[in-house]
Write a protein that binds this DNA or RNA. Sequence first.
RNA 1: GGCCCCGUCGUCUAACGGACAGGACACCGCUCUUUCAAGGCGGAAAUACGGGUUCGACUCCCGUCGGGGCCA
Length: 478
Amino acid sequence: MVVRTRFAPSPTGYLHLGSARTALFNFLFAKNQKGVFILRIEDTDRERSKKEFVDDIIESLQWLGINYDEGPIFQSERIEIYKRVIEELLNKGKAYRCFCSKEELENKRLEQITKGEPPRYDGTCSKLTKEEINEKLSRNVPYVIRLKVPEQVLTFKDLLRGEIKYDLRLIGDFVIAKSENEPLFHLATPVDDYYQGITHVIRGAEHIPNTPKQILIYKAMNWKPPIYAHIPLILGEAGGKLSKRHGAKSIKEYRAEGFLPEAILNFLVLLGWHPKREKEIISIEEVIKEFNLEDVEKRSAVFNSKKLIWLNKFYLRKKTSQEIEKIILADEYLKYLRDYLNKYPKEITYKIIELGKERANTIKEIFETMKFLYEKFDYPKELLIWKDYTFDQIKSSLINVRENIKNIPEDKFNYEFIKQVLDTLSEDKGLTYWPLRVALTGLEASPPPIDIMLIYGKEKSLELINKAIDKLNDIQIS
RNA sequence: GGCCCCGUCGUCUAACGGACAGGACACCGCUCUUUCAAGGCGGAAAUACGGGUUCGACUCCCGUCGGGGCCA
C-alpha cells in the first residue's frame, strides 16, 4: 500500500510555524515511506478564506522546500462530491434534516444544563415522518443536516498515543452541513480524505476531539478509516497555542528578515522529533531517511526563538558571500536589501558580507552590523577611551596611528602590512586598536579595524581618524 | 464547567524496569582576543507531588496537582 498524507490548511491566515510543522511532518513521513504528499486547501468557509492566504501557503511551502506531489486541491471546487455524500447519508437514514430553530435549540440547551446533563441535540427531528419533512420543505422552513450518532463509546487508535476513548453520548447528533450545498468541516474533511486515498492523517493535537466525529462519517458511509497520528502542539513562549493572533510570526515574516529555510526546517523538525544519534544540526535529506512517526514526542513543545536564531546564525555563517548575494537578488522579500549591494564595488561588498555574516543572526542583520559603512555616524568622544587612559593619551595614540598609516604606500595597504605597522605602536595593543576602531565605526562592538580600513581605503580611513582627533581637541578647549 | 491529551534542567530533548539522569539552546565563569562574533574549557540547572507494584521505578498502576486542547 502506498502511503498518502496530506496537509489541509484553511486559508484564513498566513502560514505560520505551527502549521508549517504539520506540513513538514506529513511531508517527512510520506517521503520516508516513499509515499505521496498532497496539499489540500480547505476553503469551504467562503467568508474567511482569502486568495491572499492561499498564495501565501503555497509560496511559503515552496520556499521551505516542503514540496507536494499532488494538489493544491480546493474543497470549494468539490461541492458536488459532498452533495452526493450528504444525499446518500440522507437516503440511508444515517443523517437527517433538522428544522429546529435557534431559539428552540437554545432553550433545550439551557434546560439540559440546569438538569446537569451535557448539552447536546435531543434528536427531535430524527423522528419526523416523511410527510412532516415534505411539509416543512414545501414551506421552506430553514434546516441543517445532522448525522445520527450512536449512543456508545467510540475507540480509535492514535499512532502516537495508543487507544483514545470517546463517549459519543456527549456529542449528540451534530451538524455536518448547513444544507446540501454547504458542507461543514466535519463532513468535508473525511470525505476528501477518503476520496483522495489518504492513508495517514497527521495533524495537530487540537484535532483529537474532532476525530471521533470524522470516523463516524466513515462508518456511516461504510468506508475504512485512515490511520490517525496527532502530533503535539507548539505553544507560544508566553504559553498557549502558537497562533496567528498570539504574536506568532508567519513564515513570510521570517523570510523577509533573512532567516534561511534550512534553519527553520531544522528547528521545526527538532520540535517533537530527534535523530537517533544525538545531534542538533541535521539536513532534511538525513531526516527523511530516519523519520519515524512513532518516535514523535507526545507532549506539546514551547517555541524557543533563541534556538531558531542560533540555528539560523549557524547556517548563515556557512554560506559564502556570493551565496548570500544570490539569495538577496533572487528573493522578492529581500528586495529592500538590494541597495546595499551597489554602494561599493563587488569585491568590497563580498568582504562586507563576509565580515557581517560572522556576527549577524539574519541576512538583514548583516547590513545592520555594517551600517557605519552606509550612513553617517556619530559617537560620544568618551567612547574613544580605552581602559583608564586619558583623553591626551588616546589622542596621541590616534595621531601616532594616523602618521604611520599615512606613511604606508598605497601598494602596501594590505592586511599583513598594516598589522605589522600597528602592532608595534604600543605595548598595550588595545590603546592602538580600540580608539582606531571606534573612530572607524562609532560603535562599541564591530568587526576589527584593519578589515574596515581595507574597505574604506586609506583616504577615507585617515579622514575618520582625523575626525576622532578633532573630537578630542575640543576637550582641551572646554 | 464537561470531555480529551500531556507532565525529565528556564526551553528543546536522551535514558531494554538496573549509569554520577546524558546532550543542545539560553544563562554564569574562565580562556583566546583591541571590541563584538565565533571557538575552547568549566559551572549552575530536571525526573510535579503522594501512594502503590518490584530486590530495584524517570520508566508500570492509582490518586492529587499542574499545563494544554476541544466543546459549551
